[in-house]
Design a protein around this nucleic acid. Structure first.
Lengths: 246, 246
DNA sequence: CGTTCCCTTGAGTAGTTTCAATACTTGTGG
DNA sequence: CCACAAGTATTGAAACTACTCAAGGGAACG
């Protein structure tokens, strides 16, 4: 789990805690594209850490497939399921992926015996909630082109935390259909929007590769501010200075 | 805190735990309409339980005021701030409200000594995340009228959990501006939408009162399914049957 | 009894969807 | 190796939804 919270609160995790986390993994598995790892409403007995690949959070509603979140390597994807037990959404791979499973029984021991680590785990689930909120802002306020740019900007930063982005882009298995589902538009319209962003030289998108000629320009266009990702920025917390830190 | 998780997991809280929660409250305060209780980026040393009134989660971006969540009595509004320390959004009252404050130092003791209660608190923050996800679906998929109907349906259910809804509506201090900000449209457009819903006899909205002539019809129109609120439904968890329950 | 805030309506414009049709890619079997 | 099928990407035109700008009406409060 070397990528977990990397670039966020990783520095406040002791070597012992880090090793403890690693020891929770019961099984590592390679899963093909489009696999539903955990289905809405099914009681979960384990949670999933994404090691390699992409995962989408999907809510199906009257035939429509809505993507309500995306996860990148290092994300403890369905840790939520430890507290919720049944998820409200499906966890689906995008592209072939590598995942590790952690049994809930072991997490329960952590909660009982490791308050500091528990709080880090809690933090990581709330990080997802903060990202949800920014998606809400994005959907409430931005037009399709800006939404797409926002998602790309967000993914770049999250991949950069875990060392998987390069200065001019990143690899990404999402199809135009996925992007449309995540932006709340149709595949036809997202296609026109991609064309327009390409012409504006903000974005290039093909064959699993995103190219960003000028990241500052893209982020300005998307009204993107990275604070909500809780990396180094105005919301970053130096845990040591927190008096209530258990 | 008698309303906390009522209708959700309240039944798995022991009398002792319930009393323990009550003992955490340091101060109860009456706050006027539009008060910012906790501001984005400010280090929080306490969290807020909403006892009476409404609270909105607000993210300001380039002059626009986006409502990314609404809270009703019984909600442990900014419990998130215990783990996140600095919130990514503002916590703002809508209408005069009554709130109770819980110091984080006391919460840290709970996390260190009460694994079961800790998990309930964690659960309650993830409930907010589940609501965020449904808002994302709503914004991705529905048109303005359906979005508004969806918010009203959600509020009815959440108020009903804590005994504040009646069969044909509920009291609500939100103005048309607030509803527009929560639906991602303009105040002008939300006004037309309200008019249209009124004509369809799905909704009546005036002077702090929402009237719902036919709730089933409203929910059908909004494509509303209440499961994600984790009341009694397909996602409801009977905690006793959970083997990892600490 | 006027000011202020909130609600309501109209007309023109911009953004998005829908339906329909056409290309490009990739993988598979002959 | 080519032919074909299936999935993905692209483009056009018409209809619809929502936004903007602008102006007027109503209720509440001092």
């Amino acid at each position: 789990m070397r990528l977990f919270l990397k670039g966020r609160l990783r520095h406040v995790m002791s070597e012992r805690e880090s090793a403890l986390l690693d020891s929770l993994v019961e099984r590592v598995e390679r899963v093909p594209d489009g696999t539903c790892i955990l289905e809405r409403g099914v009681v979960a007995r384990q949670s999933t850490m994404l090691i390699d690949g992409f995962i989408s959070r999907v809510i199906n509603d009257s035939g429509n497939r809505n993507i309500v979140g995306l996860q990148v390597p290092g994300d403890f994807v369905d840790l939520h399921a430890f507290a919720l037990k049944r998820l409200d959404h499906d966890i689906v791979t995008v592209g072939p992926s590598l995942v590790a499973y952690v049994p809930h029984a072991k997490l329960a021991e952590i909660v009982a015996q490791e308050p500091h680590l528990t709080r880090l785990l809690w933090f990581s689930t709330l990080l997802d909630a903060a990202i949800h909120r920014e998606w809400i802002v994005k959907l409430e306020q931005l037009r399709a082109g800006e939404r797409l740019a926002h998602i790309v900007a967000e993914l770049w930063h999250r991949l950069n935390f875990v060392g998987l982005a390069d200065p001019h882009g990143f690899n990404m298995p999402l199809l135009q259909t996925h992007l449309a589902n995540a932006c709340g538009t149709t595949a036809v319209h997202i296609n026109r929007v991609i064309k327009s962003l390409r012409q504006k030289e903000l974005l290039e998108l093909n064959r699993g590769r995103v190219t960003i000629p000028d990241r500052a320009a893209l982020e300005a266009y998307a009204h993107f501010r990275p604070d909500y990702l809780y990396g180094e920025g105005s919301l970053f917390l130096d845990f040591e200075t927190d008096s209530t830190n258990p």
